[in-house]
Design a protein around this nucleic acid. Structure first.
Length: 599
RNA sequence: GGGCGCGUGGCUCAGCUUGGAUAGAGCACCGGGUUCCUAACCCGGCUGUCGAGGGUUCAAAUCCCUCCGCGCCCGCCA
């Protein structure tokens, strides 16, 4: 039986930690026995924790062999031969230039199950207090419904925030609402006129049928693309708009301006909420003007030696020493009329974030790459030590076969994608659960459809361009969100049918003798390390990869051994199912995908 | 033109930051599995000049250089 943690002092949340300690102890002793003077830290750093074909942990000895002047294979054999057995490691053998260690399943099962039982929803993560972290993501201009291209930002940002939170960080998510500038002003400009007085080119927008359920982002955003086109060859309108922009920036904009931005934003947030993306804080760009942050930045910038005055009084920063593209080496931060620019306000915004947080993470599209580098150059010039962490993702390409090319090829709204996913899921649910009430079918379909979309985004590295492929985005099989949800539901179903009230009792880790049980335990034990990796690298794709591995291993176990009818094995296997259920659930939470008890 | 990013089986990807043992998945395809805990599943099979070339190294998908292809950016826009 598992022993309580209290017997061993402070406990690491990672089941591997105590085992690895013992392994390195043993390795150090083994090295000493054969007269190899290798430092403990060096030995530990050489270990390959992914193991190899022969075990859980591998030690490539090449780097030790060189300085010691011995052939690698010989050294590996000697190290293995001089190994003194310990309880954590059940097998050690040399294979070529490698020493392979197999961790005792008994020991690993104890350490892992005990932690899952104790930490439950917190298993995999760490306890705080960690650093204060701000994750800013999505921040789309409030000019209309969210496009499929934007979903990547929200899913990546939200997941990074969830992981950081699980790792004990004190996380605040922020949406930077761009209510200043031309884009939002265009919406205000057109809606400040009665629709029957709109120019005919724009009034055409009103002909687009309204969606069945009116949403303000779709409704008020409709004229936007038409306004954009109209302005190109109507100087009088341009002048009106310029005037409006100026009034807004000076704080004398019409109240309609903020109202529209809020309404449209609310619609966009409703879409994001469907994929479980929510925000703690909204920072309105205009607030940086009213609270003096922008003025303060302007003053600091103007005092810099690298600050230059342009012909008409505009001010720019000379950034030629930063290796930026030639044309960007001189960046204007204040207009001739004294007003600020986007970069200036963004500098002010980031200075604010960096003052209130230890880690500042921005999720940005690749069109903002140069902007990010420019920001860093500004911080360097200002003598700021702190730097934001930029997660830059590539766009979802708007090609692909199928329905993508509605309306000239570009615009597929996120809601449209989600609706499609949900509709497809509804069919699947109906096939399986004939007598389920409609509301429950809807609930499951929504969770499955949106889960599929979220997972589909997460599984790909942000910096990879992803072609928009409807078939793939809506896949419910294999490496997909629904596969993970399904595995969770399957585990839950066994637990329910067992009619047990407690699961982590009466188990015997010595009974996990089958290959599938041992493999499942090993994947369960891996989560803490996976999360540390995701926290460090922001490679959210590894979380999705882990989720798939876990679901895969659970299904293999499910098919390989019976649980409810397994006699003496039953309590131990039920515990393993409960553990898998818990961890699968934790991983779904981390990915922002709904847990389903049945599907 | 310059800067940055991407290039891995037929398709979509993981692995690259910290170089290690026969490069892993999913989809598609072929062949099996359901009187038994959810077949959105499982078992087996097939599929690779890791864009090309050079370099560093005992060892390169991984690090360095050159080239090719694709994408993005280069506003007193955001």
């Amino acid at each position: 039986m598992a022993k309580p943690d209290s017997e061993r002092g402070p406990v690491s949340p990672d089941p591997w930690t105590p085992i690895l300690e013992e392994l390195v102890d043993g390795l150090e002793a083994s090295a000493r026995r054969i007269g190899l003077g290798a430092e403990r830290a060096v030995l530990a750093s050489l270990l390959d924790l992914e193991g190899g074909p022969q075990g859980d942990v591998a030690l490539p000895v090449h780097r030790l062999a060189g300085p010691a002047g011995r052939p690698p294979a010989e050294l590996a054999a000697e190290l293995a031969r001089s190994w003194a057995p310990i309880r954590s490691i059940e097998d050690v053998r040399a294979d070529g230039a490698f020493v392979n260690f197999r961790i005792s399943t008994l020991r690993l099962a104890q350490e892992t199950l005990e932690r899952i039982a104790a930490r439950r929803g917190r298993y995999g993560g760490q306890d705080g207090p960690g650093p204060r972290t701000i994750v800013e993501h999505t921040s789309a201009n409030p000019t209309g419904p969210l496009h499929v291209g934007r979903v990547r930002n929200g899913v990546i940002g939200d997941t990074v925030a969830r992981v950081a939170r699980a790792m004990g960080e004190s996380v605040t998510t922020q949406y930077y609402v761009d209510d200043l500038g031309r884009q939002a002003a265009m919406i205000t400009w057109i809606w400040s006129k009665p629709p029957d007085q709109w120019p005919p080119e724009i009034a055409a927008a009103a002909l687009i049928p309204e969606p069945a359920v009116r949403r303000d982002d779709a409704y008020y955003g409709r004229p936007y693309p038409f306004v954009s086109a109209y302005l190109k060859d109507h100087p009088d309108a341009q002048a009106e708009l310029a005037d409006l922009v100026q009034r807004i920036e000076e704080g004398h904009g019409p109240s309609l301006h903020r109202e529209l931005a809020e309404k449209i934003l609310a619609g966009m947030l409703a879409t994001l909420a469907r994929i479980n993306v929510r925000f703690d804080t909204f920072v309105w760009e205009s607030s940086l003007l009213t609270d003096g942050s922008v003025d303060a930045v302007l003053r600091r910038l103007n005092e810099l030696p690298s600050s230059l005055t342009e012909e008409n009084g505009a001010r720019a920063l000379d950034l030629s020493r930063y290796g930026l593209p030639k044309e960007s080496s001189r960046v204007v931060y204040q207009r001739g009329n004294g007003t600020s620019l986007y970069i200036t306000r963004d500098v002010a915004y980031h200075l604010k974030k960096m003052r209130s947080a230890d880690r500042v993470i921005d999720v940005l599209g690749q069109d903002h790459r140069l902007h990010a580098r420019t920001l860093n150059a500004f911080f360097e010039e200002l003598g700021e030590e702190h730097r934001p962490i930029f997660i830059i993702y590539q766009d979802i390409l708007a090609h692909a076969g199928g329905r993508m090319s509605t309306r000239g090829g570009s615009a597929v709204w996120l809601d449209q994608l989600l609706d499609d996913a949900v509709e497809r899921a509804r069919g699947e649910v109906r096939d399986r659960w004939e007598s389920l009430e409609a509301a429950e079918v809807d609930r499951i379909a929504e969770a499955v459809g949106t889960g599929a979309v979220r997972f589909h985004i997460l599984r790909v590295a942000p910096e990879k361009p992803v072609p928009f492929d409807w078939e793939q985005a809506l896949s419910f099989e294999g490496r997909s969100g629904p596969f993970v949800q399904y595995s969770y539901a399957r585990a839950g179903s066994i637990l329910r049918k067992s009619e047990a009230t407690e699961f982590f009792v009466g188990y015997d880790p010595a009974r996990y003798t089958s290959e599938s049980e041992q493999a499942l335990i090993r994947v369960l034990a891996r989560l803490p390390r996976v999360l540390r990796g995701v926290l460090r690298t922001n490679h959210v794709q590894n979380l999705a990869g882990y989720a798939h591995d876990l679901a895969d291993e659970f299904n293999r176990f499910y098919h390989a051994v019976p649980v409810l009818t397994s006699g003496a094995e039953r309590p131990s296997r039920l515990t393993l199912v409960a553990a898998a259920h818990q961890v699968l659930g934790n991983v779904l939470d981390l990915m922002g995908i709904e847990r389903l008890e049945r599907m």
